[in-house]
Protein backbone atom coordinates (compact mmCIF):
# COMPACT_ATOMS: atom_id res chain seq x y z
CA UNK A 1 0.00 0.00 0.00
CA UNK A 2 2.70 2.44 1.06
CA UNK A 3 4.75 0.92 -1.72
CA UNK A 4 2.53 2.14 -4.52
CA UNK A 5 2.25 5.71 -3.35
CA UNK A 6 5.26 7.72 -2.25
CA UNK A 7 5.14 10.75 0.02
CA UNK A 8 8.06 13.15 0.50
CA UNK A 9 8.22 16.27 2.63
CA UNK A 10 10.06 19.04 0.78
CA UNK A 11 10.04 22.73 1.76
CA UNK A 12 7.10 22.12 4.06
CA UNK A 13 5.15 20.64 1.19
CA UNK A 14 4.03 17.04 0.89
CA UNK A 15 4.88 15.67 -2.51
CA UNK A 16 2.68 12.70 -3.27
CA UNK A 17 2.94 10.63 -6.39
CA UNK A 18 -0.02 8.36 -6.97
CA UNK A 19 0.45 5.14 -8.89
CA UNK A 20 -1.82 3.99 -11.67
CA UNK A 21 -3.14 0.87 -9.95
CA UNK A 22 -4.30 2.69 -6.84
CA UNK A 23 -7.53 1.24 -5.44
CA UNK A 24 -10.44 3.02 -3.79
CA UNK A 25 -9.41 1.72 -0.37
CA UNK A 26 -5.85 2.84 -0.81
CA UNK A 27 -6.80 6.31 -1.91
CA UNK A 28 -9.11 6.68 1.09
CA UNK A 29 -6.23 5.60 3.33
CA UNK A 30 -4.03 8.13 1.58
CA UNK A 31 -6.54 10.88 2.26
CA UNK A 32 -6.57 9.95 5.92
CA UNK A 33 -2.81 9.75 6.16
CA UNK A 34 -2.33 13.10 4.41
CA UNK A 35 -4.91 14.85 6.59
CA UNK A 36 -2.95 13.82 9.66
CA UNK A 37 0.42 14.80 8.29
CA UNK A 38 -0.82 18.23 7.14
CA UNK A 39 -1.91 19.11 10.62
CA UNK A 40 0.95 17.45 12.52
CA UNK A 41 3.85 18.61 10.36
CA UNK A 42 2.59 22.15 9.69
CA UNK A 43 2.57 21.59 5.97
CA UNK A 44 1.88 24.55 3.66
CA UNK A 45 0.94 22.58 0.65
CA UNK A 46 0.15 19.18 -0.79
CA UNK A 47 1.26 18.40 -4.31
CA UNK A 48 -0.48 15.42 -5.86
CA UNK A 49 1.40 14.13 -8.86
CA UNK A 50 -1.11 12.20 -10.93
CA UNK A 51 0.95 11.93 -14.12
CA UNK A 52 1.02 8.14 -13.71
CA UNK A 53 -2.77 7.95 -13.63
CA UNK A 54 -4.35 6.89 -16.89
CA UNK A 55 -7.76 7.06 -15.32
CA UNK A 56 -9.36 9.40 -12.81
CA UNK A 57 -12.98 8.50 -12.29
CA UNK A 58 -15.58 10.23 -10.15
CA UNK A 59 -14.46 8.38 -7.04
CA UNK A 60 -10.82 9.39 -7.25
CA UNK A 61 -11.89 12.85 -8.41
CA UNK A 62 -14.10 13.21 -5.37
CA UNK A 63 -11.34 12.12 -2.98
CA UNK A 64 -9.01 14.70 -4.56
CA UNK A 65 -11.66 17.42 -4.22
CA UNK A 66 -12.22 16.45 -0.58
CA UNK A 67 -8.52 16.47 0.13
CA UNK A 68 -8.37 20.02 -1.25
CA UNK A 69 -11.19 20.98 1.10
CA UNK A 70 -9.55 19.30 4.10
CA UNK A 71 -6.16 20.86 3.48
CA UNK A 72 -7.72 24.30 3.04
CA UNK A 73 -9.34 23.93 6.46
CA UNK A 74 -5.91 23.07 7.80
CA UNK A 75 -4.37 26.09 6.08
CA UNK A 76 -2.60 24.30 3.25
CA UNK A 77 -3.11 24.42 -0.51
CA UNK A 78 -3.58 21.31 -2.62
CA UNK A 79 -2.08 21.20 -6.10
CA UNK A 80 -2.86 18.57 -8.67
CA UNK A 81 0.00 18.27 -11.13
CA UNK A 82 0.74 16.36 -14.28
CA UNK A 83 -2.80 15.50 -15.31
CA UNK A 84 -2.81 13.81 -18.69
CA UNK A 85 -4.79 15.39 -21.55
CA UNK A 86 -7.09 12.37 -21.86
CA UNK A 87 -7.82 12.48 -18.13
CA UNK A 88 -8.60 16.23 -18.28
CA UNK A 89 -11.03 15.71 -21.17
CA UNK A 90 -12.73 12.84 -19.37
CA UNK A 91 -13.10 14.69 -16.07
CA UNK A 92 -14.63 17.68 -17.83
CA UNK A 93 -17.03 15.35 -19.57
CA UNK A 94 -17.95 13.87 -16.21
CA UNK A 95 -18.66 17.37 -14.96
CA UNK A 96 -15.81 17.30 -12.43
CA UNK A 97 -14.05 20.63 -12.70
CA UNK A 98 -12.30 20.41 -9.29
CA UNK A 99 -12.78 24.12 -8.62
CA UNK A 100 -11.31 23.96 -5.12
CA UNK A 101 -8.11 22.35 -6.30
CA UNK A 102 -5.16 24.26 -7.65
CA UNK A 103 -3.45 22.82 -10.67
CA UNK A 104 0.04 23.06 -12.14
CA UNK A 105 1.86 21.53 -15.06
CA UNK A 106 4.50 19.80 -12.99
CA UNK A 107 5.91 19.40 -9.53
CA UNK A 108 8.41 22.18 -10.17
CA UNK A 109 5.66 24.57 -11.21
CA UNK A 110 3.66 23.78 -8.11
CA UNK A 111 6.65 24.28 -5.81
CA UNK A 112 7.43 27.63 -7.46
CA UNK A 113 3.88 28.76 -6.88
CA UNK A 114 3.96 27.56 -3.29
CA UNK A 115 7.19 29.48 -2.67
CA UNK A 116 5.61 32.63 -4.05
CA UNK A 117 2.55 32.33 -1.85
Amino acid sequence: MAGVTTIHLVERALLVSIQDDVTDTEIIDLQDQLSHRISEEEVRGVVLDISALEIVDTFVGRVIAQLAGISRLLDAETYVVGMRPAVAVTLVELGMYLPETRTALSLTHALTQLRRA
Binding site: D24, E54, I55, V56, D57, T58, F59, R84, P85, A86, V87, V89, T90, E93, L94
Partner: peptide, 16 residues
Protein backbone atom coordinates in the same frame (compact mmCIF):
# COMPACT_ATOMS: atom_id res chain seq x y z
CA UNK B 1 -5.54 7.33 -25.87
CA UNK B 2 -8.46 9.62 -25.26
CA UNK B 3 -10.96 6.98 -26.32
CA UNK B 4 -9.26 4.44 -24.07
CA UNK B 5 -9.28 6.74 -21.05
CA UNK B 6 -12.91 7.67 -21.56
CA UNK B 7 -14.11 4.10 -21.81
CA UNK B 8 -11.88 2.70 -19.07
CA UNK B 9 -13.22 5.45 -16.80
CA UNK B 10 -16.78 4.48 -17.66
CA UNK B 11 -15.98 0.83 -16.88
CA UNK B 12 -14.44 1.88 -13.59
CA UNK B 13 -17.66 3.69 -12.61
CA UNK B 14 -19.88 0.77 -13.49
CA UNK B 15 -17.65 -1.85 -11.86
CA UNK B 16 -17.57 0.17 -8.65
Amino acid sequence: TIRITRFATAVSEIAR
